[in-house]
Each structure stands twice: as C-alpha cells, then as structure tokens.
Write a protein that binds this DNA or RNA. Structure first.
Lengths: 132, 132
DNA sequence: ATCATATTGCAAACGAGTTGCATTTGTCAA
DNA sequence: TTGACAAATGCAACTCGTTTGCAATATGAT
C-alpha cells in the first residue's frame, strides 16, 4: 500500500493526517504518470480547489511528488520515483504523450547542489503527422 | 545588423513592418538570453501588452524566436540559434540561472516526428546552499 | 472528552495571457 | 503623391490557473 508510505511522510513531517490529504494521497498513488492540480480538482469534486493546491505544495515540500516543467502555463506534477526516473514526449497537436527513458547524463556544476532535471520532448505523433 | 534580418523575415512572411514590431525586434536583438513577454512590457512601456503578446506569437510562428519551457507559469522565449542550443540551470530558491551545454542524446521514436526537447536543471546555487 | 491549533473552505484577489471591437497605420495601386 | 483598404494597434473587459485572508471546522495531544 503506497499511500501508507505517504501518510508516514506526512506524520514524520509533523503534519496532520486529514481526510482531504488522505484522499489526495490515494488519488496520486492510483494515478499513473504526470498530473495537474486541476485533474485532481476534476476528480475529487468534494474538495475545495484551495485545499488541493495547498496539499500539492505540501507534498512537494515533503518530496512525495515533484514538479514537472509545464508546456502551457499549467503546472504538472509526478509521484517521486514512480516506475523509475523517465521523461515524456508530448504531441504538440493532440497532446497525446508517451514515456521515454532518461538518458540525460548527470551534470556536475560546482556552484549548484541537489541538481534535478525536468525534460520534455515534443513532436508530432503518427496520426498528427499524417493530418498536417 | 540582426534586426534587418528579422524585418526581412516579417516582409517575406507577408506581414507589415510596423513601429511596434520594429521596436520589439530591436529589443530582442539587443537582449542576451532568455526573456519573457513581461520583460518586454516593462522595457517598452509605450506599447500595449496585447501588441507585445501578439508580436511574440508572430515571431514564434516565423521562427524568429522560440519558446523555452516555463518553471513558474510564465512563458519564456529565446532568439533562435543564439549561441547554439543549450539549457539552463535555475536555483530553486533565488531563481538565479546559468547556461548549461546540451548533452541530451537525439532520440528516435518511430511514431513521433519533428522531435524537440526542453530541459531545465534545478538546484541550489552556492549562496542558497549556505543559507539553507 | 476537552482544548489548542493546524487545516479547511469560502470569497475575493491575483498575475499572465486572450478576445472583441473601434481606431489608426502601413502598403500598394492609381 | 495621394487615397483606399486591409492589417495591425490599443483599449476595456475577460479568461484561466493559482493564491491570500479569514472565519469555521477537525485533528490529535492531554
């Protein structure tokens, strides 16, 4: 049960285990891949938007999820270490996405610590290539 | 004179060479590195936001500039082919950024064409590492 | 079970970017 | 050079994702 793990991280961090937080944790565990705050809003309609945004921030600070770069002004997130580190390729026309294994070499920059990276590939999927 | 080149691209594309467009072209040529629409707004205060946004879109469609992924909901742009393809590392605390050469291998995905990538490294810069 | 306080939900605001529309400006043909 | 017409501008008012202030509520330590 992956959500138990998240509950643990919350309690360890000194945060209360509330109903909204549990619901959001379960949703995230049950969701494969990248997601946005608004997707959670659309699913968990009993919860206030504000609570969802705040919980997402909390989860980020607890390293339960991390931000993925945005393609369109909407912020996306991903569960830390789901199925190993990887990236996505997104079709610029129809927004369909696929996973891509990570081949970014580790970089060494003396003046920066705790380096993470966010990578998105964009292109045209087979269908959209034909239609364009 | 790099802006002459841009004027050419506009005329070739069948677009008028207006005062606002020339001003924005000059600003972009004179600007080193990544920029946002709002930065131009702050500099060229006589121009309407709307005109700036519309001109940026036009320049993107003419391949004069291209979008850079955003870290915070604000869209960033860069002059095409300035100093060759590269990426950025951004400090998560103070937002200071540095350039990083690109070492992402070309990927081959049969079902996608015209693949581009957007990569941002994040981390803590030296100062923020000390203060945290 | 009680209580302090962390957390929620509402309303109202925010900032970035967009749209509709009347006015102005570039361009091209006369 | 001028004038006409489409293209482009600027204003106002809007959208959408996200945030803030604050009163009401729920959690968990006692």
């Amino acid at each position: 049960m992956q959500n138990k793990e998240i509950y643990h991280q919350m309690v360890n961090g000194g945060y209360k285990l509330t109903k909204p937080r549990k619901l959001i944790a379960k949703w995230i565990v049950g969701h494969k891949g990248v997601f946005s705050a608004l997707e959670i809003c659309r699913s968990l309609t009993d919860l206030d938007r504000v609570t969802i945004y705040r919980t997402i921030k909390l989860f980020c600070s607890l390293d339960i999820i991390h931000t993925v770069l945005s393609l369109n002004g909407e912020q996306y997130y991903e569960r830390h270490a789901t199925r190993g580190h990887h990236h996505h390729i997104v079709c610029t026309m129809c927004k369909k996405s696929e996973c891509v294994p990570c081949e970014v070499p580790e970089i060494e920059i003396s003046s920066f610590k705790k380096i993470h990276h966010s990578l998105v590939f964009t292109g045209l999927c087979d269908k959209c290539t034909i239609n364009s």
